[in-house]
Design a protein around this nucleic acid. Structure first.
Ligand code: NAD
Ligand code: NAD
Lengths: 220, 220
DNA sequence: CTCGTTTTGTTCTCGCGTTCACAAACTCCT
DNA sequence: AGGAGTTTGTGAACGCGAGAACAAAACGAG
């Protein structure tokens, strides 16, 4: 129904609206919100039009009202239980991340295959054995899982999650994981992001190099 | 020259090729590589065709040769120096991330505004005051910077980075940062990813709900 | 050497997303 | 009340990316 590209931007608008609300702003135009969200105002209006007509012509949008409508559309008016698997460097950072709670997610369990970690408290939540996954998933009706294990373990963890009823996975491991139809996977990959930056950086360098060469060597 | 969508997939191919090479495979077809990378084989071939004709019809691609060609195109045949700013929960995880080094990046400095952190060793690299940014950037010719500070500090840090000569920024803070033309910014945002998953999760739930309602209520 | 098999590289078509441009709708001032 | 000024919501044009389909090229068997 709502285009995927729009869905990916709604959370950005939500964050921008929250920032505006915290700044005491009650009403904003599409131009204001667009610049706060870093997008084009026409795109913003078109995106919002998929949700309904929540603005007032000649006036703009009511910040709190629009915020609620977007939150409702995304589905973050209530908290989602989340499990994190793989409590190493990254898992610790994720578990300590306050943005989880404030944006509609609740970490209900931290799981790790390394039994030496069992019982360790991270941000007040105890680390439990990976084998507890099924029990926790069914007890808390967990639909969203986060994978922060090494790449080699990612597919196995994903399979276990799916078997336990998880239908959305956020994967931080640099590995392609395959899941049955109906299960969503999103991946976050630091090295891919850096490599994309490196590609553009290299092109900039070539560009400058050519300009310099042209300046020195004259017209070629 | 190369479409942006293709650039974003080249690192994935590179990783898949590395995995194949480690498995002792010397040659692969577009079908093999595509399934290892999780994409369609037609798309893969089209992507590779932007780089040149590095395959052999009827045979496939030489794994090592293709790997080198992609690495060269991305610009990761030599290491890129990187600075990380904000050595909190996430910054620690990033500094400890071994995938940095193995994929063409070298952390040359860890910076934090909190002077209590100065001197702390993280993965063998000492944390230094944020004000050392300019000196480090010019000494190591740093072009790529990573922001892992709170959102409120992100724009300031970005401005200082740009002034120090950084032209590519990877931003982990949940904030829109604006930079001059010629500077690239990529953002990684955990909560946005989770919210996208939540949206689809909610839709799945509605879908099931409707099916259940239809099954109970009969044809409506 | 020739023919069949395999697999690449490329052309073509379709659909999605972005952006422009403007009519409709609302407010405020006179 | 009416007109001027704003700002939304959307229709239409355009460009890019995905995928199917196929021709060209390499290889091996006979
Ligand atoms: N550290 C970072 O900043 C960073 C950045 C980007 C991506 N990543 C990726 O995230 C993943 C985790 O990185 P890390 O630095 O935290 O690694 P890590 O080695 O510190 O932690 C991995 C954890 O996963 C656990 N584990 C291993 N196999 C498991 C299994 N089958 N089930 C459950 N738990 C298991 C280990 O016991 C360990 O605690 C890696 O795939 C890495 O490539 C890390
Ligand atoms: N922890 C996570 O897993 C996680 C996940 C996603 C996003 N994030 C985001 O990453 C950022 C960092 O998260 P964190 O959990 O590491 O926070 P943190 O508070 O643990 O660390 C932030 C660090 O930045 C330093 N800092 C503050 N202002 C600075 C400045 N102006 N210049 C230099 N350094 C400065 C602080 O001293 C601190 O060490 C936040 O924006 C957070 O929203 C974190």
């Amino acid at each position: 129904m709502i285009p995927e590209a729009t869905v990916a931007r709604l959370p950005v608008y939500l964050r921008a609206l929250t920032a505006l609300a915290e700044g005491g702003i009650r009403t904003c135009s599409s131009e204001d919100l667009a610049s706060a969200a870093g997008v084009n105002s026409a795109k913003l209006r078109k995106d919002l039009s998929y949700l309904g007509s929540y603005g007032t012509r000649g006036v703009g949008y009511d910040v709190d009202y629009l915020r609620y409508q977007i939150a409702r559309e995304i589905g973050v008016t209530h908290d989602w239980p989340v499990v994190i698997v793989g409590i190493g460097n990254l898992g610790h950072a994720l578990a300590n991340y306050s943005g989880f709670r404030s944006r509609g997610f609740r970490v209900v369990a931290l799981l790790d295959a390394d039994l030496d970690r069992t019982g360790e408290l991270v941000a007040g939540v105890p680390v439990r054995p990976f084998d507890d996954l099924e029990a926790i998933a069914s007890e808390h009706a967990v639909a969203i899982g986060v994978i922060a294990t090494p790449a080699a373990a990612a597919q196995d963890v994903a399979d276990r999650m799916v078997a336990a009823g998880v239908t959305s996975i956020l994967n931080f491991a640099p590995a392609v994981i395959s899941v049955p139809e109906g299960v969503d996977v999103r991946k976050v990959d630091l090295s891919i992001e850096l490599q994309i930056l490196a590609y553009h950086e290299q092109r900039k360098a070539h560009e400058t190099g050519r300009e310099v060469a042209a300046a020195i060597g004259g017209d070629q």
